[in-house]
Design a protein around this nucleic acid. Structure first.
Lengths: 105, 105
DNA sequence: GGCTGATATATCAGATATGATATATCTACG
DNA sequence: CGTAGATATATCATATCTGATATATCAGCC
């Protein structure tokens, strides 16, 4: 079970987990979906930090530094689309992305 | 190298691969991104057909039958978001989704 | 042929994610 | 301290994706 601290951390990023009952309304699939996004987000941050600045990565994918920051911080407004585009731009292979997702759950 | 037939197949779904030069403007990462979407699309169709109708799946994820049809046919207007939500709704695990993505490339 | 259920295609108004911009915060170094 | 580079936060107009709806096509069966 997810603890209070984690719920608050997610809620602060815009995820709809404010109250306990709200949280319980998340279906198992929705929960997995969020976890996949968070896993990609973490992976992006790790890979990017070794290679370049947020500004450099942003220009590679015609995005902006603020959006990369949100992507790396698990902001709910960032789509999986952008997360995957960004991870690919760090040189990740489909195999690596697959492993990150498989590591969820 | 992708052949003419495949280019035409993609273009017909809305992908920007109309002319050869347009096609060549796709970066390697963009190409991988499209392939990931197509792999998820195929996987969705296979899994869903064994379990339920498009209409049933649509209601599970508060979508519509036409949108599921587009998702299964690799239409460019369908996001990875929707593809993953749909695959999860067929009961796929993160492990299975990871494998599908890892299988690209 | 006609009927029925499933899937595909077309259109569209509304919702959501987007990049841009401005600015704030942080960190390291002089 | 002050300056510089990197990252975080806020706001916003626009582009893209969305579900809904209507309708077309297809397959199997009578």
């Amino acid at each position: 079970m997810m603890d209070q601290a984690k719920r608050e951390r997610l809620a602060s990023k815009g995820w709809k987990v404010g109250t306990v009952s709200d949280f319980l309304e998340l279906t198992a699939e929705e929960a997995i979906f969020v976890e996949i996004k968070l896993a990609l987000s973490q992976n992006l941050k790790e890979r990017r930090q070794k290679l370049m600045t947020q500004t450099e990565l942003a220009s590679k994918i015609s995005s902006s530094q603020p959006r990369i920051a949100k992507a790396e911080n698990g902001d709910a407004s960032v789509s999986i689309e952008l997360l995957i585009r960004a991870v690919l731009a760090t040189g990740a292979t489909p195999q690596e992305i697959g492993q990150v997702i498989a590591g969820v759950g």
